[in-house]
């Protein structure tokens, strides 16, 4: 996954909040449910408008006051799972 990849939400994803810090997503083509914690929910909400992976990392690093390398290491597998689950689409630049 490259920092220039454009991430966007897939159409038809169902979402619902089940507690203050947990959001549940269900993709349009699967019956696999994803539970997102507070930080993952924040990522999902930021992706309401399409964004590159690099821009997302920079924004999270600034807001969470953490090194971009650390954010990238945590974020990349989560993004990959959401792409794999049919919730996000990733377009190579």
């Amino acid at each position: 996954m490259k920092s220039t990849d454009l991430l966007s939400r897939r159409e038809g994803v169902l979402e619902a909040r089940v507690s203050d810090d947990e959001l549940v997503l269900l993709g349009p083509e699967s019956e696999e449910y994803f539970g997102l914690d507070a930080i993952a929910s924040d990522v999902w909400e930021r992706l309401e408008s399409p964004m590159t992976l690099g821009a997302l990392i920079d924004a999270l690093a600034a807001d969470y006051d953490a090194p971009a390398e650390r954010i990238e290491a945590d974020l990349t597998p989560a993004i990959a799972a959401l792409v794999e689950g049919g919730l996000l689409s990733r377009a190579a630049a």
Partner: peptide
Amino acid sequence: LDGAYFRLLARVAA
């Protein structure tokens, strides 16, 4: 109604 029902069901499940 899928989205609205999903939110209602999530409330019930919670």
